[in-house]
Design a protein around this nucleic acid. Structure first.
Lengths: 183, 183
DNA sequence: CCGCGATGTATCGCTGCGATACATCGCACC
DNA sequence: GGTGCGATGTATCGCAGCGATACATCGCGG
C-alpha cells in the first residue's frame, strides 16, 4: 500500500528516500503519513522484488571526486519496467475489501492515471463499504442508545456524521466522474 | 490504550473476552474497532500485571457438574484494586502527545468518570494538536498547490475540512464543559 | 569558525489488524 | 427427533506501519 504510493511518485521522476517522504506528506496531506520506519524497509523490499532500481545517473556523483570513503550518499531510485506494470496493476486492482479500504486515499491521489470507469468502480466500492459500516453502527446505536453514556453517545454521533459526510463527498465525485465517461 | 478501554468497561461489571469485544464496538462505534488479535493478548498482559483477575464467582460453573473434560468455558475477568487505581491514573494522564492523540476516543468515552477540569484539559489538548497539524498541512498545501494534481488537491481539501469540523466540534464541547466547572 | 537546522539513511520495539482455527450452544425447521 | 446453522467463545499467526532514535553530512548565519 505504501508500495502503490512509492510507485506512483517514482512514476513521475526518480527520487531518494528522504524526498519520497516529503512528497508523500505533500501528496497525502492529513490523510496518511508513512514514517521512515515503513518507508526504508519497503524500498528494500521493492528493490528485491525488482520493481525499482538504484539510479546511478545522479548528478551529485558525476561532479568530480565524490570524496569516496564511507560517503553514504543519496540512494536514488527509479521505476523498472516491472514496476510500471505493477503500478498499473495495483491501481485498478480489487482484492479483499479491507485492502481496498486502506489504500483508498493513495489510490485516489493517483486517479489521474486511471480510466474513468475504474475511478467510478473504486469510488462506489468505497462508498458502499462506508454505508455498510454506517448502517451497522446505526443499528447498534439504536439498540443500545438508552443504556449509553452521554459522552459515548456524542462520540458515536460525531463519528456517524463524519462517515455520512464522506459518503456525500463520494457521491458528488461519482456524479462528476460519470459525466466523464464517454457516452 | 486498549487497556484503558478494558479497564473502563470492567469498571462497571465483570466480563469475558467476547462480551468485552461487543461492548467495545457498542461503546466506540465507528471510532475504533479492536480485534481479538489485540484483545486476548492484552487481557493476558493485564492479568500478568495484576490489573485484572479471573472471576470465579460465575453462575455457569456453579450450576452442577460443568461437564469438565476440555470444556474451555468462559473466562470472566474483574478489576483488581490495582486495576482501579491504574484506570484513574490513565484517565487523567498526559504522556507524549502521540499517546494522548490515539487514546482520545477511548478517553472521551469514559469522560463521565473524570472531573470537568480534566475533561477540558484533554479536549483542549486534542484541539491544539489538531490545529497544529491542520496548519502544517495548510502551509504545505499553499506552497505546492500549483504543482498538484486535481485529485490530490480534492483529497487534501476534503481532509482539511474534516479536521476543521472536528476542531469546531471540540470547541463546542469545551464551551459546554467550562460552564460545568464550579465558578 | 562554529553551531544549528535541514537533509539523509537506517533500525528497533511495539501496537493492532485481519484472517483463521476450533469448539460449543441454542433453536428453528422439517 | 435429528440436524444444521448462526451466535457465542477462546486463541494464535504473520504482517503493516508507527514513533523514537541514532548517526552523519551539508549549508548558512552570526
Amino acid at each position: 500500500m505504501l508500495e502503490l504510493a512509492v510507485l506512483g511518485l517514482l512514476h513521475e521522476s526518480p527520487l531518494h528516500g528522504y524526498e519520497l517522504r516529503q512528497r508523500l506528506k505533500a501528496t497525502l496531506g492529513s490523510f496518511r503519513a508513512f514514517s521512515y520506519g515503513s518507508l526504508y524497509p519497503t524500498l528494500r523490499r521493492m528493490k528485491d522484488a525488482g520493481w525499482i532500481a538504484e539510479d546511478e545517473g545522479d548528478a551529485d556523483v558525476v561532479a568530480g571526486a565524490p570524496a569516496l570513503t564511507g560517503r553514504r550518499g543519496k540512494v536514488v531510485y527509479k521505476l523498472t519496467a516491472e514496476g510500471k506494470e505493477k503500478f498499473t496493476e495495483l491501481l485498478s486492482e480489487a482484492g479483499p475489501s479491507s485492502w481496498e479500504d486502506e489504500q483508498f486515499g493513495v489510490h485516489f491521489a493517483f486517479f489521474s492515471k486511471t480510466d474513468p470507469e475504474v475511478r467510478v468502480r473504486i469510488l462506489e466500492g468505497r462508498r458502499s463499504r462506508l454505508e455498510e459500516r454506517r448502517e451497522g453502527v446505526r443499528a447498534g446505536l439504536a439498540r443500545t442508545r438508552a443504556r449509553l453514556d452521554s459522552y459515548t453517545l456524542q462520540l458515536q454521533e460525531h463519528g456517524l456524521e463524519s462517515v455520512d459526510r464522506e459518503v456525500r463527498w463520494l457521491s458528488e465525485l461519482i456524479e462528476t466522474e460519470r459525466k466523464n465517461i464517454p457516452h
